[in-house]
Design a protein around this nucleic acid. Sequence first.
RNA 1: GGCCGGUUGGUCAAGAGGUUAAGACACCGCCCUUUCACGGCGGUAUCGCGGGUUCAAUUCCCGCACCGGUCACCA
Length: 505
Amino acid sequence: MSQRKVRVRFAPSPTGALHIGGVRTALYNYLFAKQNGGDLILRIEDTDSQRFVPGAEDYIIEALTWLGIKFDEGVGFGGNYGPYRQSERKEIYKQYVDQLISNGLAYIAFDTPSELEEKRNAIANFQYDASTRLQMRNSLTLSAEETNTLIAAGNQYVVRIKIEPNENIVVNDLIRGEVIINSSVLDDKVLYKSADQLPTYHMANIVDDHLMEVTHVIRGEEWLPSAPLHVLLYRYLGWTDTMPAFAHLPLLLKPEGNGKLSKRDGDRLGFPVFPLEWKDPVSGDISSGYRESGYLPEAVVNFLALLGWNPGNDQEILTMDELVKLFSLEHCSKSGAKFDYEKGKWFNHQYIQKKDNATLAALFQPVLAEKGIEVCSSYVEKVVSLMKERVNFVKELWDQSAFFFVAPLSYDEKTVKKRWKDNSSAQLTELIEVLRTVDDFGVENTEEIVKGWIEQNQYHLGNIMNAFRLALVGESKGPHIFNITEALGKEETIARLQRAIEILK
RNA sequence: GGCCGGUUGGUCAAGAGGUUAAGACACCGCCCUUUCACGGCGGUAUCGCGGGUUCAAUUCCCGCACCGGUCACCA
């Protein structure tokens, strides 16, 4: 299996929004494919007709596109190995199922769900396997004639794999090494159900990976227990020599408490677990998304990439291109990672700093529009350049810099108490007169004149500046004060001073 | 419960027999400063426990504990 072109797939089932853990799996597959000059396939695993959710497929594509994870083929991308939706591949699976049956590697079982339920209730740890299958209603215990009669009469049945007991099955995992499981602990898994004429995940997955010439299966750790079954299926189908290599990724865990990160944790703890906002078509419930929360896609990618993998050094800010170069399965960790939302915010902060002002201003404009503010982009860019280093999200820009767009309506009580002195209004009144004489309201000039005036009169610099800031901003925050006066302009600066003097007396 | 996987600071983690056990997030303190941030500096680990192997073990082996996953006609 030397020179096969690397081909990997991301194979979600369209049962709802794509979980952030799934996004990471898709990302790792993408990085691995690109690094090796291979292909990434998007395959939709919709063999469970019961759980299909409309809109989920589009959601998956939109989310991954937003993040810059590009597919080479698959649903929505074309390709020569289609169709890529499992529900459209019924006939393909059927022939392999039949092949297994005729080779004696699988059999037909008529036990109804309720009969099985009964068994499970009656016998502790009941498992449909070599030790029990001869007590069940299947083509192993029934004659061929009886079997055919039952089928002809329209009885529903399933096809089960026939697993021989007592054999150690070796799964070679690229991340975990050899994992050995005894076949006796495996059950005769259902491969196919006559009810909807669809295979189950296991069968469809192996057939498709083989037919689509997948070379590496990179998926979540929750699949590790069924990996031996998959190895056996490759053998039963005669495809062992082209069996893909496996890599089982560690899980994303809840930030606190136990268990893997779930859909509900996000809303409970106040952060998104989905890339895009998702509205459940049935319940109408809305779950927040990273995009709508103001995350930059590069930040999400970077954050996710480092959750379960690291480059082996202390580099943390990595672009997609760098990730493609550096990624390796060997550096993936084996243990689950608790999801640290705070770190995610930090990544976004880093990427905001890296973005140029024009881009950020363009992202900020809609937020301003929402507040009913219309200003030219050059002014927004100026504000952004002054304020971006202090926010994690574009949206926060408004909280931090509203005073650039609207005069303070009130003055923060604590700040007033601390910064507004008895002589403040007298001094600021004087300051107004000084400012009136300033023609060039640029940062340096205004600062020089104001500081000169303060020095001349032996005033306390801090007292004046803090009261000045209070008048302009309404509280004790913001960038260098003369950057604010420059942006506001002479008229507005003086108006704000007058207003503060009036109100605070 | 059976089976499988994992276990380095609150979190993400580097490390691969001999190190003062990196770095980042968060937190705390200090510095910078006219405010708030940014930035800078500093602080917090007897590497889950118990046995081995070895001159030497966080690193190798075994047992235990704990955490996680999985045991469907779901993926």
